[in-house]
Computed example of a mutant assay.
Amino acid sequence: MRLLPWTSDDGKPCYLSTDNPHSRLSQLADDIEAAQLASAEQVLAGARAVLEDAKAGERAVRFALTRAVESLGDVLRVAVSRGGDTGVR
């Protein structure tokens, strides 16, 4: 069973049961995971820039933190999907 990089409409995890890593759904999940990881790199760079800016206001810091939390959730889901046990539930 593979944890997919998206949730159902009610927020529950979605899983894929297949032995074919080349199925359309497996490839879609791979593509989305790659996009999530690339996005996380950009969010990290942006958050670092905000933290380094002594003039950054509360709104900028809150925005950066919100995006960082979203990205961290995505990255943890990818880690679990790829067999890592993050200990986070």
Rank of each mutant, 00 (worst) to 15 (best):
M1T: 06
M1Q: 07
R2N: 11
L3D: 03
L3I: 05
L3Q: 08
L4Q: 02
W6P: 10
W6M: 10
T7D: 15
T7G: 14
S8Q: 10
S8M: 07
G11V: 04
K12E: 11
K12L: 13
K12R: 11
P13A: 02
P13C: 04
P13V: 01
L16D: 02
L16C: 02
L16Y: 00
T18H: 01
T18R: 01
D19V: 13
D19P: 05
N20I: 08
N20F: 07
P21D: 05
H22P: 13
H22W: 09
S23A: 11
R24V: 12
R24K: 13
Q27V: 14
Q27M: 14
Q27A: 11
D30T: 04
D30V: 02
D31R: 12
D31S: 13
D31N: 13
D31T: 02
D31V: 06
I32E: 09
E33K: 10
E33A: 14
Q36D: 05
L37M: 05
A38D: 09
S39P: 12
A40S: 08
E41Q: 12
Q42E: 13
Q42M: 14
A45R: 08
A45N: 11
A45M: 09
A45L: 13
G46M: 07
G46P: 03
A47E: 01
A49I: 04
V50C: 02
L51D: 03
A54S: 12
A54I: 11
K55T: 09
G57R: 00
G57K: 03
R59F: 10
A60R: 06
A60E: 12
V61Y: 00
R62Q: 12
F63C: 15
F63L: 15
F63M: 15
A64I: 02
R67I: 06
R67D: 12
A68R: 07
A68H: 05
E70H: 09
S71L: 10
L72E: 01
G73K: 11
G73A: 07
V75P: 10
V75S: 04
V75N: 04
V75A: 09
V75W: 00
L76K: 04
R77H: 08
R77C: 12
V78P: 11
A79Y: 00
A79H: 01
S81Q: 09
R82M: 04
D85F: 03
G87Q: 03
V88T: 07
R89T: 05
